[in-house]
Design a protein around this nucleic acid. Sequence first.
DNA 1: CTGGGGATGGGGCCC
DNA 2: AGGGCCCCATCCCCA
Length: 237
Amino acid sequence: MPRSFLVKKCFTSKKPNYSELESQTESYPGGEISAVTACYPSALVWDVGLLLTPETNPLPEGLGPMDLTSLSSSEEDEGRSSDPPSPTPAERFPCTCCSKSYSSPAGLSRHQLSHCQGGEGIANSRAFRCKHCPKEYSSLGALKMHIRSHTLPCVCSTCGKAFSRPWLLQGHIRTHTGERPFSCTHCSRAFADRSNLRAHLQTHAEVKKYQCTTCSRTFSRMSLLHKHSEAGCCVSS
DNA sequence: CTGGGGATGGGGCCC
DNA sequence: AGGGCCCCATCCCCA
């Protein structure tokens, strides 16, 4: 089933969203998540790197947080990069509902759609309701996008699996064709998905992106850090 | 149990 | 305004 579309930040009744846990402390049914949250990294390594000192968090000889740049600047990361979030310039367009800001009014306008899913923002204005589920949207465009997650118009001609967006189908088709256009510059591996290459590149890094704030151990994936935390590093201390 | 790969979905930006 | 693309996040599975 497709995950909630455009409304994830307002309806978190499904699985825990760890990205949210990084930015806010939300209690989830069951309560165990908040315990994990307590020991979750508040910053990625590139952020932590600003805080690292040889005294407090010694790194392996010759290594530093900026080693990551050699990964992010490789061929898989042209154009928009995974640069650390930068301070918001004054000339940006801030959202009045949250702390985010955007480089253009259009960007801000689209973002603000995401604030309209909780019901509060639509009450006084015209609401576009999905006929397949109770969700409401403030614009027809947002609703159309949402409806795709019900109709799944992009169908794989090989296996019949359906997707909401064409590029999702494209990625899926690669699982049939075996095409792997994204190759690692450090080893011979190739990947069908750029994100998976990016995750793989982390395995070549000695200082990885996700760091335990308690033991300073770094992990290539957030899920691994999560497991590490659940296994007791942070809890036992 | 841990680390890593495969697959997939959502948000956001650019054109 | 909409489509395409990218990044990030997450789940599942396997070695």
